[in-house]
């Protein structure tokens, strides 16, 4: 009985297995990036960057139609241009990073929508924006797995510098020049994951997979190691539960995975022991020292 409900959809249907593997790969790589985005107070950066990718994906689409590699490579290029461009503007002008990123992504979004409307219908635009987790082919799956591996390896290499740069950027700046490259490499990984994510879940929902598990973990965990682990666990659980429920309820899978992640978030918001709402309602006890 339990097997029928929980395992059979994946045993019986290849598209469900692919969807699960693809979304788990996204969760594994995206959630730690989301943790650092939140700790760096850059929670909206993922959203902004996801728009920045659009004109690249649109150019890839105009040149080669709905195919994986042209859209991926062009999307990656557009995202990196915006990441580097807004970083350079923030360092060289009076504008802070948030303002320069906002300017870049708004221009990008307008450009992307214009480019897509040059050819194709609204349905095509919906594919770019919302993806289709149930239609992952081998090439996409390999891309997602490759991106996840690269991201985890990259984060392992960046980890120490990234933590220091987040806690005390002035300290890192006073000891050398590692700060700038660290931030750029980190943003590069964010772009890479959003590009991977728009294949499976679409640009908008890929950001949800990055940010929602991380925000939930922030409410629960008291140190960064457990925050990373909890975020990844929420991401994987959201993928699995979202796929199973949407399978039986005939709901769209991509958005439903994000809704499940949103459910975890609401739970953490209420019950989170590190920063949830109920924590404030408990009768206050205090210690001797």
């Amino acid at each position: 009985m339990l097997y029928d409900i929980l395992i059979a959809p994946f045993a019986d249907f290849a598209f469900m297995r692919r969807a699960l593997v693809g979304s788990i790969a996204l969760a594994l790589a995206g959630s730690p990036l989301g943790v650092f985005l939140i700790l760096r107070r850059m929670s909206l950066t993922g959203d902004a960057m996801s728009h920045a990718i659009l004109p690249g994906a649109a150019i890839g689409y105009l040149v080669a139609g709905l195919s994986l590699w042209p859209m991926t490579i062009a999307g990656l290029a557009a995202g990196l241009i915006v990441a580097v461009g807004s970083g350079v503007v923030a360092r060289a002008t009076i504008l802070r990073e948030d303002a320069s990123l906002a300017a870049f992504y708004l221009i990008s979004l307008a450009l992307g929508v214009t480019l897509i409307s040059l050819r194709g219908s609204n349905i095509d635009l919906l594919h770019v924006l919302f993806g289709s987790v149930l239609a992952l082919d081998d090439a996409t799956l390999i891309l997602l797995a490759g991106i996840a591996s690269l991201t985890l390896a990259g984060l392992a290499l960046l980890y120490r510098a990234l933590v220091i740069e987040t806690v005390d950027p002035g300290f890192l700046a006073s000891t050398g020049r590692a700060g700038g490259p660290t931030q750029m490499a980190f943003l590069g990984l964010v772009v890479l994951n959003l590009v991977g994510g728009f294949q499976a879940l679409g640009t908008l929902l890929a950001v949800g997979m990055m940010m929602l598990p991380a925000a939930s973990a922030r409410l629960i965990a008291r140190d960064i190691t457990s925050m990373l682990a909890i975020a990844a666990a929420f991401g994987i659980a959201s993928s699995y539960i979202g796929l199973v429920v949407s399978f039986y309820a005939s709901l769209p899978s991509g958005p439903f995975i994000i809704l499940v992640a949103g459910g975890f978030y609401v739970g953490a918001l209420v019950f989170g022991r590190a920063g949830g709402l109920l924590r404030n309602l408990k009768p206050k006890r205090h210690l001797e020292a």
Partner: peptide, 19 residues
């Protein structure tokens, strides 16, 4: 400009000096 809200321990911040 240390971010005191970051979930990190005293020992880890002091160890940053090893950078």
């Amino acid at each position: 400009d240390i971010d005191t809200s970051f979930p990190i321990t005293v020992l880890d911040v002091v160890a940053m000096g090893l950078w």
